[in-house]
């Protein structure tokens, strides 16, 4: 039986992610784990997370999962969610500068400073919280059955700024168009929470369970 590993490094509501995957799993077995071996053996991997990036990265390293993630993204479909997306970049402005896994070139920035550079955005709240539109900038198997500009649920104060525009798969408008989805080979990473995005979110998770990692 095919398996999907949900990496549990002690942060955030992993249960929501695993329950949503089970809801659309079909024949796939959902394994919630922090063990390297279980992740390496799985057919696909999900890295979820909410909270502070510094804690996320240090926990992944403590559990030896940083190397496991590097290995996984090379040979199987990999889905990063929220903090699990931000962890893939080089670094973050969080806590005065936090080094991340460096799998995707670029950095993670705070909304407040960026919004100050855009006029007419004084009334925009941070965190960016709620249902916003996700604009697909190119076709990808993960978007199958999901309408252009569908709304997904976001809750975050930082956004990713990848160095290479070619990895941007979707953008979302919040004062400016920020990168809400990245795709790079086996990696599909989203800033929003598909596990909390009702029909559109479940459709995306179902697509992940049948995606072969190519585009």
């Amino acid at each position: 039986m095919a398996t999907v590993a949900v990496i549990d490094y002690g942060m955030g509501n992993i249960r929501s992610v695993s329950k949503a995957l089970e809801h659309v799993s079909g024949g796939t077995r959902v394994v919630v784990t922090h063990e390297a071996e279980a992740v390496l053996q799985a057919d696909r991997v999900v890295l979820p997370g909410v909270g502070a990036l510094q804690d996320c990265v240090s926990e992944l390293k403590r559990l030896g999962l940083d190397e496991v993630i590097r290995e996984s993204v090379r040979n199987k479909p990999f889905l990063g969610i929220c903090l699990g997306m931000q962890a893939l970049l080089d670094s973050s402005e969080e806590n005065g500068g936090t080094k991340a896994l460096g799998i995707i070139p670029g950095e993670t920035r705070h909304f407040t400073d960026q919004l100050k550079t855009v006029s007419g955005t004084d009334a925009l709240k941070v965190p960016h919280m709620g249902w916003n539109q996700v604009h697909q900038v190119k076709p990808h198997p993960m978007w199958q059955g999901i309408r252009q500009d569908s709304r997904f649920y976001f809750v975050h104060s930082y956004f990713v700024a990848p160095a290479d525009d070619a990895v941007v798969s979707a953008t979302t408008p919040y004062g400016f168009d920020f990168t809400s989805v990245i795709d790079q080979e086996n990696i599909f990473a989203v800033q929003f929470h598909p596990e909390k995005s009702q029909h559109a979110g479940l459709a995306l998770l179902a697509n992940f369970l049948s995606w072969d990692g190519s585009n």
Partner: peptide, 11 residues
């Protein structure tokens, strides 16, 4: 909460 979160996928 466990029961609801298993079946309803909104925040």
């Amino acid at each position: 909460v466990e029961e609801v979160a298993s079946q309803v996928f909104i925040p």
